[in-house]
Design a protein around this nucleic acid. Structure first.
Length: 595
RNA sequence: GGAGCCUUAGCUCAAUUGGUUAGAGCGCCGCCCUGUCACGGCGGAGGUUGCGGGUUCGAGCCCCGUAGGCUCCGCCA
């Protein structure tokens, strides 16, 4: 037995007890005579005191200890000398008087200090096992476990059954780039790693499972971001004979259980609901951050007959004029204005018009084109006050909204309006639903309609006539997202369960009858064998845990994440393989790697 | 595929306008120190300034290229 207690368990009541502890040397304080060692394990710290007059040999050994050496200490629990208790430490009233010291393992010079926030992320990733020893990441890993456990417990209590689905799966034409796995038994053929268990979970509904969930690994071979990894984890849920309201209720119950378990927070349910149209109109985003105002205001009616050509032309072309009022932002610097203009252009605006309200004066080159009525409309609709700065977007609805939405976020960042990294109470956790997403989105590159969510999402019943009439841009989907503090943490839909409707959907997406059979034949067949109405949702576990932990990157809530280029710097993967392995797989590398 | 920022000791950073032998704190090594808890004190080792080229009497600093890292755009049904 290596230890009798952990490093956070001994208190005053244990004084006199013989104990054995094991862990890492957190810090040594060597006074030449007396030597203090803070011994650390995952639970906490306990001070060990070596006194040469009690055991010269032990003290000599202790003198050689360095941070992160692994040791085992036997001894007895003693009260600290009066006045030397440490109130900042749970074990601060006691210390260990050792009678034995075993050095289990020595450490090299540390790659970086374990008690500071290292700057170099690749250094951290190369020594990830060491990085994870830091309290912040250790806390994140355990928080993630609590979230996963609360998820399983809650869904189990609601009658959901966890079913594993294959990792060796099949490539599908829609969606993200697949990771491929060559088949040895079937030369020239490939498995694909699942982008999501989407089809399997629908097939489980056909199988009569009725209530399914899985904490599922998913794989997408696309470029990475702070919140995107090539392999990530979804809380995947599907149920039969349900409406969106049923899914909403399960989701709200589950997130409530998760936040209770992880942070002891009672979140406010039911969540607000916004339609996609409303979210984009008011916030310029389908996953808005509502923790600050600065809403988009529509001014199209006020400028319909304006003599200001830029606005007038946008409206005449069927577009809109919208604006946001950034309170107390009239002090905007030249550099900030340039940056915001760059952002506006990046998202499709031709330029960026804004008005600073300073010393009772509206300062902008465009104000002279405005009529008194137009100014009055601005004044009242935007609630303009001294010190404000108003930004305009005049363009197609989508462009104007997106541009102002992006500006809104950046301005909030500059003004530091966004919530603190770790919101303290429920009011700072803003959950809501976004519903009624468009069913389709146009792909100019492919010159065809794509499914906004996925090809199995059903149109809203009241929009079926639009779907039949092939008015694709107007068809809304029975699809929904959950947004938390401006981050999309989950999304789902009611699925198509009628084979005829699914065929029509594939047709709308430009998938040939042959391709439908080869790619989706199993699903179409299943829909003909008694598929119940069903629908579901999936959550990004990593993003959810990231928010709960107050982290900025999902890498900080994953044990072994990949870097920007999808490499694991610790194991140096991906790596070359033995030619024999390639031969087994009937693979040959192209000489020209740019083939 | 594109844009921005970054790269100086094991780590975090500094180095005036381009100017002597590239410094500091932490860590490491050695010595001193008997109640600390970020213990303290003295001393020491440790550098091809990512790499390659250029400009210059002289480059950590300027220019070009390149590699790597991070963030973002594209991409992510």
């Amino acid at each position: 037995m290596y230890r009798t207690h952990n490093c956070n368990s001994l208190r005053k009541t244990d004084i006199g007890q013989p104990v054995t502890l094991a862990g890492w040397v957190n810090v040594t304080r060597d006074h030449g005579g007396v030597i203090f060692i803070d011994l650390r394990d995952r639970e906490g710290l306990t001070q060990v005191v070596f006194r040469p007059e009690e055991d010269a040999e032990l003290a000599k050994q202790a003198h050689a200890l360095r941070g992160e050496d692994v040791i085992q200490v036997s001894g007895r629990v003693a009260a600290r000398l009066p006045g030397t208790e440490n109130p900042n430490l749970a074990t601060g009233d006691i210390e260990i008087i050792p009678s034995g010291l075993r050095i289990l393992n020595r450490t090299d010079t540390l790659p970086f200090p374990i008690d500071a926030e290292p700057q170099n992320e690749d250094l951290r990733m190369t020594h990830r096992y060491f990085d994870l020893r830091r309290p912040r990441l250790a806390r994140n890993l355990r928080m993630r476990h609590r979230v996963a456990k609360a998820t399983r417990d809650y869904l189990d209590s609601q009658g959901f059954v966890e079913v594993e689905t294959p990792i060796l799966s099949k490539s599908t034409p829609e969606g993200a780039r697949d990771f491929l796995v060559p088949s040895r038994n079937m030369p020239g053929k490939f498995y694909a790693l699942p982008q999501a268990p989407q089809q399997y979970k629908q097939l489980l509904m056909v199988a009569g499972v009725e209530k399914y969930f899985q904490i599922a690994k998913c794989f997408r071979d696309e470029d990475l971001r702070a919140d995107r990894q090539p392999e990530f984890t979804q809380i995947d849920i599907e149920a039969s004979f349900v409406t969106p309201d049923d899914i909403f209720a399960v989701t709200e119950g589950m997130l409530g259980a998760i936040f209770k378990a992880a942070r002891n927070i009672e979140i406010k349910t039911p969540f607000d609901r916004l339609t996609y149209r409303e979210a984009v109109s008011r916030y310029g985003s389908d996953k808005p951050d509502r923790r600050f105002g600065m809403e988009l205001v529509d001014l199209s009616d006020d400028f319909r007959l304006s003599s200001f050509k830029v606005f007038r032309n946008a409206i005449d072309a069927g577009g809109v004029v919208k604006a946001i009022n950034a309170k107390r932002f009239a002090g905007i610097t030249i550099g900030q204005a340039d940056e915001l203009t760059e952002i506006a252009k990046l998202y499709g605006a031709k330029g960026l018009a804004f008005i600073k309200i300073e010393n009772g004066e509206w300062k902008s080159p465009i104000v002279k084109f405005f009529s008194d009525a137009e100014k009055a409309a601005l004044q009242s609709k935007l609630n303009i006050e001294e010190g404000d700065c108003v930004f305009f977007g005049a363009d197609k609805w989508e462009t104007a909204c997106e541009v102002l939405g992006r500006l809104r976020l950046r301005i909030a960042e500059i003004q530091d309006l966004l919530g603190r990294a770790r919101p303290a109470d429920a009011s700072e956790w803003d959950f809501f639903w976004v519903t009624d997403f468009p069913l389709f989105e146009w792909s100019p590159e492919e010159n065809k309609w794509n499914a906004m969510h996925h090809p199995f999402t059903r149109p809203k019943t009241e929009d079926m006539p639009l779907f039949e009439a092939k008015k694709f841009p107007e068809v809304r989907a029975e699809a929904y997202d959950v947004v938390l503090n401006g981050v999309e943490i989950g999304g789902g839909s009611m699925r198509i369960y009628e084979p005829e409707l699914q065929e029509k959907m594939f047709e709308a997406l430009g998938i040939s009858p042959e391709a439908r059979q080869s790619q989706f034949g199993h699903l179409l067949r299943a829909l003909r064998l008694g598929a119940p109405p069903h629908g579901g949702i999936a959550f990004g576990l990593d993003r959810l845990v990231m928010l709960i932990c107050g982290e900025q990157s999902i890498r900080d809530v994953m044990a072994f994440p990949k870097n920007n280029r999808a490499m694991d710097l610790m194991t140096q993967s991906p790596a070359e393989v033995d030619p024999r392995q390639l031969r087994d797989l009937s693979l040959k590398l192209a000489k020209d790697k740019k083939l």
